[in-house]
Amino acid sequence: MSDFNAPDRDVTRAIRSWLHEDRHEDASRIAAAVLDRVESTPRRRVSWWPARRTPTVSKILGFAGAAAIVVAVILGARLLGSPAPSRPGTAATPSPSASVEPSAAPSAAEPSASVGGGLQGPYVFAGTPGVATTISISTPGWYDEDGALIWNHTGGDPPEGAGVLGFTESDLWYVPADPCHWASTLPATHAASLDALVAALAAQASRDASAPAEFTVSGHAGKSITLHVPDDAVFNRCDQTQFCTWANPVVSPAAPCFRHHQAPGQIDEFWIVNVDGQLVAFDLAYYAATPQHVIDEMHAFVTSATFAP
C-alpha cells in the first residue's frame, strides 16, 4: 500500500520497484545478429568535429537518406523573429507584407556545432526531401535532441518551454476541421497550395486563429498564421489522445497525426514558405509565459532561413 499524498519519495519508490522488476529480456539473439552484421557494416571515419556534433550529423544524414516525410524541428522556447508580430495570444499576429531577408547565409554543408552548451551556427533541418532548409542559430542555449528536434534550454514543456518544428512536405497536409476529433474530420484531399493550407488552418475549429499575413524570407513568399490550443482542451478525450493540427493518413495510416501538441495553452505560429512550388512550414510553439526574448530568437531563426533544391 502506498499513500501518494505523501512526498515524491513514495512515488519514486514505486517507480524504482516497478522498473527493477524482471522482465525476462534475452538479448542473446540480438547480440548474435549484430555480430553477424559487423563484417558487412562499414565503420565511419574519425571525425574532427566536436564530439557532441557527431551523433547529430549522423542523425541528420540518416534522416535525409531515408527521405523522411516529416522534418520536425522543434526549438525550445521561442523562435521566430522579427518581421513579426508581437506575441500571438496577447495581441497581434504577423505583420502583413513583412519582408524578411536572411540575416546570414549559412552554409548547408556545415551543420551547427555544439558550443557552450548548445547549438550555434548554421543548422540544417534533417530529412527535407526536395528542399534543403538551413537556419542560423546565433544565440546559445539551443539543443538538438535527436537530429530532428531542437529545444531551447527551458525545454518544450509549459509553462515557459518552446520549440520550433520544420516541415517540408508540399503535398502531405491534411488539416482536420476539428483538431480534437481529427480522425473523423480529415478532408478527402490534402492542402496542396500555400493558400489552401493557410485557409484550412484558419478554419480549424477552436484555434482562435489570427488573420493570415504575408511575408517573404530569402526571396520566397510566404504566409503566417497563429493558432492556439484552448486552455481547457482535454487531450485525453481527443482521438488517439492527440490534439492534432495536421496529419497524413495516406503515408502513415497507423499514426497519421504528425503535428500534435504538447499541452493546452500552447501557441503555434505557422510560417509557411512557398519555395519554388514546395511548401516549407516552420511551426514555432511556445506558451503565454514564454519570455519575449526567446520568441524573438525563434523569429530570428526563421528570418535567417535559406533554401536550396
Binding site: 516529416v70 530532428a148 487531450f235 489522445t241 492527440q242 497525426c257 503535428r259 501538441h261
Partner: peptide
C-alpha cells in the same frame, strides 16, 4: 510521428 508530451 513526433511524439509530443501528452498531458493526460
Amino acid at each position: 510521428r513526433w511524439a509530443p508530451n501528452l498531458r493526460l
